[in-house]
């Protein structure tokens, strides 16, 4: 029997909330799928759409952008900018025909280790039936 497809997720986590949230999940020994590659960024507002397209190009099966809850941003309003920009990226990716499930955004605070594990679990479950992302992946 063929091995089950294990999706690879690139997660852009903001330093102040979501990274700390994933840390909390780690130190609390909560179990969650090992499919995620976390990348700490200073703010969800600093995630350029180029990072996202680039991640898909370099073979990510799913991309997650996660930041502080609205109003909790360390830089006061970075996540509001992110919300606008990510909404546009999501619409654009859907428009060109990429499965909308492959690109997600979430709010995870430093105390929500549990929520973080749940988001990753759900994400992996959603990606498995879709199979590998080949549309935007570079062949070289």
């Amino acid at each position: 029997m063929a091995e089950e497809f294990e999706p690879k997720i690139v997660a852009f986590l903001c330093k102040w909330c979501s990274s700390a949230g994933s840390d909390l999940a780690g130190v609390s020994r909560m179990e969650y799928p090992p499919n995620v590659v976390p990348i700490t960024v200073m703010c969800s507002g600093s995630v350029s759409p180029l990072y996202i397209f680039s991640a898909f190009k370099r073979g990510a099966d799913g991309v997650l952008v996660s930041g502080c809850h609205p109003g909790d941003c360390h830089y006061i309003k970075g996540n509001f900018y992110a919300r606008r920009r990510i909404a546009l990226v999501k619409k654009l990716l859907d428009y060109i025909g990429l499965e909308p499930q492959r690109f997600q955004m979430s709010w995870v605070s430093a105390a929500e280790g549990k929520k973080y594990t749940q988001i990753i679990k759900d994400f992996v479950q959603e990606l498995k039936p879709l199979g590998p992302q080949t549309k935007l992946r570079s062949n070289s």
């Binding site: 759409p49 180029l50 397209f53 190009k57 990226v89 060109i96 935007l136 992946r137 570079s138 062949n139």
Partner: peptide
């Protein structure tokens, strides 16, 4: 290097998607 210059599907998509987003 965000996008290679070679005109292949994946690179073309990065270029055109990012241009579209920059013009949003």
């Amino acid at each position: 290097k965000w996008a290679e210059k070679s005109p292949v599907t994946s690179e073309n998509f990065v270029y055109h998607l990012v241009r579209a987003i920059h013009l949003a």
